Simulated assay, not measured.
Amino acid sequence: MGSYVSIRGWLECDETQLAAVQEIIARHDDNHYTHGWGSPRRHMNWTHYVFYGADIRESALDWFADQIRAMARVPASDADGDLVQGLFLVGHEVEGATEWQVRDGQLFVAQADIRHRYLDE
C-alpha cells in the first residue's frame, strides 16, 4: 500500500509572485493532490498567502518538493527584494516529521522540532 506523508503549511508572497506560484501549481496539476492547494477567498492588505494541506503517498513527495523548489526560485518583483517564503511541516508515517523552510530562494529541510510531534500522533 505504501506510506503516507501529511503536509501542511503555507507560502507568503506579493501579487506578482502569486501569479507565478499559481502557474507552477497549474504546471504540476495532477487532478488529485493538486487539490490540497488553497488560498483565502478574499485578499486583505499586502501579503498574499497560499496554503497546502493534504495526506499524500510517499511516492508523490518528489512531485510536491519540485513545486516548492520552483516556487522558492520565483524572483523578487519589486525594489524591496522580498522572495517567496514559507514553512511546511511534513509528517512521514515511518520516518517522522521534518520542517521545510522556504527562504532565500531555496528549500531547506530539517528535522522538525519536538514541539510539533503532537501533530503526527
Rank of each mutant, 00 (worst) to 15 (best):
M1T: 02
S6Q: 03
I7F: 06
R8S: 12
R8D: 05
G9D: 04
W10V: 03
W10P: 00
L11M: 13
L11F: 13
D14M: 07
T16L: 11
T16K: 15
L18R: 04
A20R: 10
A20Q: 10
V21M: 12
V21L: 15
V21S: 11
I25W: 01
A26C: 03
D29N: 14
D29S: 13
D30Y: 02
Y33Q: 07
T34R: 07
G36P: 01
G36C: 01
G38F: 00
G38S: 09
S39W: 00
P40Y: 00
R41N: 03
R42L: 04
R42I: 00
H43R: 05
H43K: 07
M44D: 01
T47N: 09
F51A: 11
Y52S: 12
G53W: 00
A54N: 08
D55A: 14
R57A: 14
E58M: 07
E58N: 10
S59D: 10
L61N: 06
D62F: 04
F64R: 06
A65M: 05
I68E: 05
I68T: 07
I68W: 02
R69G: 12
A70F: 02
M71K: 09
A72Y: 05
R73V: 00
V74T: 08
P75Y: 08
A76V: 02
S77E: 04
D78I: 00
A79Y: 00
A79H: 02
D80L: 13
G81V: 04
V84E: 13
Q85A: 15
G86Y: 04
V90F: 08
G91I: 00
H92P: 10
H92F: 08
E93K: 12
G96S: 12
G96M: 10
A97G: 12
T98I: 06
R103S: 15
Q106K: 15
L107T: 10
L107C: 13
F108N: 13
A110T: 04
A110L: 06
Q111P: 12
Q111F: 07
R117C: 09
R117Y: 09
R117N: 11
Y118H: 14
D120C: 11
E121N: 11
